[in-house]
Design a protein around this nucleic acid. Structure first.
Lengths: 134, 134
DNA sequence: ATAGATGCAAAATGTTTGCAAGTAA
DNA sequence: TTACTTGCAAACATTTTGCATCTAT
């Protein structure tokens, strides 16, 4: 992870969303964040949460996780970890990410009760065009 | 990848969807599949496509890709490859998956014009509970 | 002062579901 | 024959957007 942009304005909403993301609770959906922030700013709108999560993500301050499903999840944490997802019931379990030469085999050591079948790996970066625009 | 179940009935719709998935075109959305299959079965419904993609996925015959965005994509291909996604514009490019000790560094060799920032890795498997049910 | 941010509500997008009719085994 | 599958349409869930107002710089 690395910084790749700066926030122009730090509004109350944005600051509190960021603070909320930096606490240990992980894998928050936009709606999770909305519910949490609402306790401090009762009239914040869900649209604002979405807009800010995207901005914070693009600034490199939080991660946007794909997590297999449709609903995106956001993670303000820094420590690297992976996930196993059950092909049948969609249950997700964390995998500690250490020394993985043979990825599938290594995953077995970080997880119990899962039969590993496959994995998906996606790199995140900035393409030429967008780098120029910055 | 591996087989992990069998299809009970092979309807015309299911067979043609599967055939369509086995051609080289990759990263098809449900709607892409719908459009293609409609050329052979004009009155097929989108719901049927969704239902069958899920069934084929659970049978281990096709992969369901997360791909970062909300829209799920399906891949009938067998050869392993990864993706780079631009954090800004969401452009996706394939990465050939060979010898990657240091994953981010290795990705650089499979891709041009991207600045790699991070990656997401997700394992897919079957959990205890679901294995028992089978 | 003003570019950017907000709240609200409506729209767009993607996916799932209930049901009556149809079909593979 | 019958349990599974289909097409259709409506329902759902999630995310995005337009706009008038507000606010951090």
């Amino acid at each position: 992870m690395q910084k790749s942009g700066l926030i122009e304005r730090m509004t109350r909403q944005r600051r509190i969303i960021l603070e909320e993301m930096q606490t240990p609770g992980r894998h928050l959906t936009a709606d999770d964040v909305y519910e949490r922030v609402k306790q401090k700013i009762p009239n914040i709108s869900l649209g604002t949460v979405y807009r800010n999560l995207e901005i914070l993500h693009q600034a490199g301050l939080i991660k946007k996780l794909t997590m297999g499903g449709c609903q995106k999840k956001y993670d303000g944490g820094m420590h690297r970890h992976y996930h196993v997802r059950c092909i049948k019931c969609d249950k997700v379990q964390d995998v500690s990410a250490e020394a993985f030469q043979d990825l599938n085999k290594a995953a077995l050591h970080g997880v119990d009760s899962f039969e590993i079948i496959d994995h998906e790996l996606e790199f995140i970066g900035i393409c030429d065009k967008c780098r120029v625009k910055e």
